[in-house]
Every structure is written in structure tokens, then in C-alpha cells.
Design a binder for these strands. Structure first.
Lengths: 240, 240
DNA sequence: GTTATAATACTTGTATACAAGTATACTTGA
DNA sequence: TCAAGTATACTTGTATACAAGTATTATAAC
């Protein structure tokens, strides 16, 4: 009976399975469905007013993303702890560093142009306080970088990580637009630095901006995410 | 109507969906189903004598592994080119290097013991020319290392990669037992070196053994895999 | 012979049905 | 009050049915 957390316009052409997947993911990561909770196909199907087929599909996906665990009877919600959020950024750091090493040996003019465009979009999204659009462009920014080296398995890792990050960023950006509006200046600056690093191919600059970005985003994500969790439910810390 | 490529004893408790997934993966990676081929749920369901449900499940999994591409009508087989095999090893290198950095700061006595046990198992598998068992232990060896640092997202990457690697290693090892029996000495030596690197926490030794392992395995995998592909079908090189 | 339109045969996504298995609760016996 | 066994209500995995949509083929008009 809750409102939907996932941007409905991103689901315009999506199947029921995708809808359930995305919405369920948002509810888990936001803490609306608590970690440790047991969810069953039947109950979810009833909740979302769909049959078991799309729900089943969703659970398989979420299990591969490590935010639920499929068991014999019902799926157990794992969710994200602070530790796991840090781990996600470990992986991003790993991937994007690898990607940068490839970029150094490539012609990046096209990529830089593309990234500049996305950055402009991000600025517009800020101007109109569109958190969802901003999140979308932010993700697109990094995805564009990763895509540019044409490495299908790096892209695969990104794709496996993407949905969870999407949820995290969505929640974090929505909160920020209300509370910490000034943060966006810093985020934009960091992305500009990132583009510059790619353009000049300066390794040090890139690592710096990447870390800065993560320090910046990660800390805040944790804070906001924690507070969001505290808001949406009572404290529950005994899990794990 | 073909014989099954995937070890049937690994599927003793598996669902029909898992069976189809594993077998289909093997057929695609072995080249038995050519890349570029279009496969449909209905046809596969008929082939495997199951309903569309498990087949559908299998296709979703294989799509997330990047060896098929789901399209509007039918799925297109992508398979693995040499480039992609190299990419897989890029990822392994990335992960295992990361893991090693963590291991350096940890107590590894338990891990080393576990790895030694697995290595013994591998030797026994060689002695009895059990390619499938050897492959299993080989994968387990690396998975054990990765598991030891307790990093759920590194493990997630591994899990996403694992099935494809499993297929590759299975095919490669089976071929080797027939053609290049002496290779196994080198493989064992490399794993011993790996254990030593972990034990002594010597970064250089680890990188060395890792690269050696990959140079060793990768080159051979390519060769054998190519020849296997050539065997199992006519030459087809126009794709991508 | 070529083009446009209509019919057909396939495709996916979802709902539903059913079998086999597992936990819970309840009854029966002491 | 407690133990053991049975009944019941859940669970998953698979099969099947059906609707909506998409290619292909055949037909008809020119």
C-alpha cells in the first residue's frame, strides 16, 4: 500500500517483472523492508497485484545482486550495511582505475565531449531540483566512461553493480536536494576534475578526483542512508 | 539429441532450470551452439524436454553472463571470442590482486591449510585422470582465496564470472588430459607457488605466480578452445 | 513482376494449475 | 503438563494456458 519509490517514468516500457524488481530493490535498500525480513513469492505477488511469475523473476535478480538470499522457504532480506556500501566503492575504484589505464592509451576526444554533455545535463537537473534525473545522469557519466574501453566483462561487472548503486544514489540524491543542497557544487566540481583527468591523462589527478568523489559521496551516502533508515523504521542492529 | 557436456553428477540435486542453464552454457562455450545462432524458448524447451519456465530462467542467467543476448524475438548466441577470454582473466587478475592486498594484512594460516588440502585433491584428480574433479578443485582453490577476505562484492563478481570459467576450465582440462598431460605438473607447481606467496606474503611472488598461471592457462585455453571449436563445427569467423 | 495488404505462425510476458516437499499447529496419548 | 504423530497450510519448481505483439508468408491488385 506504500507509494512507489522507484521513478515510475523509468518504467514506462518495462514489464511487470522489471517493475517488481526495481521497486522491491528500492524498498530493501531504503530500509522500508527491513533486513532479516522473510519475503515469500505469494505474499509479494499479492502485494504487487501480479502473479508469481514476475515476482519469481525479481527475486532471482535481487539474489544475484546479493541483497536477498533465496532459501528453501521464503527469501531472506539482506539489504546493505555500511560495510557493503564501502565494498561497492571498492569495486568501483577497482573498475574505474582499470578503465583509466586503458583510456590513457586511447583517443579520448569523443569521450570527453560526451562526458561534458552529461555534465551539462547534471547541472540542468540541479537547477530544476530533479533528483531522479540527476541520479540518472550521474550513473550515465560513469557508465559512459566504462563503456568507452569496450571491455565486455568490465561492463558486466558494472551492470551487476548498477541497479544497487542506482537505488543508493537515488535515495541519497533525493535526501540531499532537501537537506544538503550545497553538496552539488562539490559533486559537479569533482566530475569536472574527472573529465580533466581523462583529457590530460594525468593518473594522479584521476586517482585524486576518484577518491575525492568517493570520500565525498560515500561518507554522505552513509550518513543520509543511515538517517533515512532510522526514519523509516525503528533501530535494528542485531542482524549479522 | 547430443550427449550432455556438463558433468551430470554435479546436477544431482539441481532443478530442471539449473540443468538447462549449465548444459546450455557448456554447449555455447564449447562452440557446439555457434555464436550468432538464434535460440528460442520453445525450441529449447522441446530439445530439453521441459517446459518454458526452466528454459526462460536459463536464458535470463546466460544473458546476465553475457554469452547470449535477449532480443525481441529469440535470443542471439554471443559465445566467447578470444578477446573475451582475455577479458575474463583481466577481471581475475584484478580481483585476486585486490584480495592479495587484503590477505597481506590477515592471518592466513587457516587459509594456507585449506589451500594445501585442495592442492592434494587436485593431485589425486590428476593421478586418476579425472578432468572434471580437477576442474572443480581448481575453481575451488581460487574461490577459497577470494572467500577468505569476506568481501561480499568481490565474491559477487566471482560468482558472476564463475559459471563461464567453470565451462572454460572443464573443456580445457578435458582436452589436456588427452593431449597435454605434462601440463599438469606446471599447473600444480604454479599453485604451490601461489600458496607460498600467500604464506610469505610476498607481493612479487604472488604477482609472478598469478601471471604465470594465467599466461600458462590462458594461452593453452585459447589454443585448445580454438581447436575444439574448429573440431565441433565449420570455421565461422565473420561474427563481430 | 512488383507492391500493398491480410492471414498465419511464431514470439514473449503473465496468469494459473498442480505436484512434491517442508514447517506449523493440533490432536491424541500418557 | 508434555511427547509423538498426524493433519493442515504454507512453500517452491514446473507445466500449461492465454493475451498481446511481431515477423513472415501468401494473396490480391496493379
Amino acid at each position: 500500500m506504500t507509494d512507489f519509490l522507484y521513478p515510475s517514468k523509468w518504467l514506462s516500457k518495462a514489464s511487470a517483472g522489471d517493475r517488481v524488481t526495481c521497486e522491491l530493490r528500492m524498498r530493501i535498500i531504503s530500509g522500508l523492508i527491513e533486513s532479516g525480513a522473510i519475503i515469500s513469492e505469494n505474499k509479494l505477488a499479492a502485494d504487487f497485484a501480479v502473479s508469481r511469475s514476475p515476482v519469481r523473476e525479481a527475486l532471482k535478480v535481487l539474489a544475484s545482486e546479493n541483497i536477498i538470499r533465496l532459501e528453501r522457504m521464503g527469501a531472506v532480506v539482506i539489504g546493505l550495511t555500511e560495510k557493503e556500501i564501502e565494498e561497492i566503492y571498492d569495486v568501483r575504484l577497482l573498475i574505474e582505475t582499470f578503465v583509466f589505464e586503458r583510456l590513457v592509451k586511447m583517443d579520448v576526444t569523443e569521450l570527453v565531449k560526451e562526458l561534458s554533455k552529461i555534465l551539462e545535463m547534471m547541472k540542468v537537473a540541479i537547477k530544476y531540483q530533479d533528483a531522479d534525473e540527476f541520479s540518472y545522469q550521474d550513473l550515465l557519466f560513469h557508465e559512459t566512461i566504462i563503456r568507452s574501453i569496450n571491455h565486455s566483462y568490465m561492463l558486466m561487472i558494472w551492470n551487476n553493480l548498477r541497479p544497487v548503486m542506482e537505488s543508493l544514489i537515488l535515495l541519497s540524491m533525493r535526501a540531499r536536494f532537501q537537506e544538503k543542497y550545497e553538496d552539488f557544487d562539490r559533486i559537479i566540481k569533482n566530475h569536472e576534475l574527472y573529465i580533466e583527468a581523462i583529457q590530460t591523462k594525468e593518473r594522479t589527478l584521476m586517482v585524486q578526483s576518484l577518491h575525492q568523489n568517493f570520500d565525498d559521496v560515500q561518507g554522505k551516502v552513509d550518513d543520509l542512508w543511515m538517517s533515512q533508515q532510522m526514519l523509516s523504521k525503528g533501530v535494528e542492529k542485531e542482524n549479522d
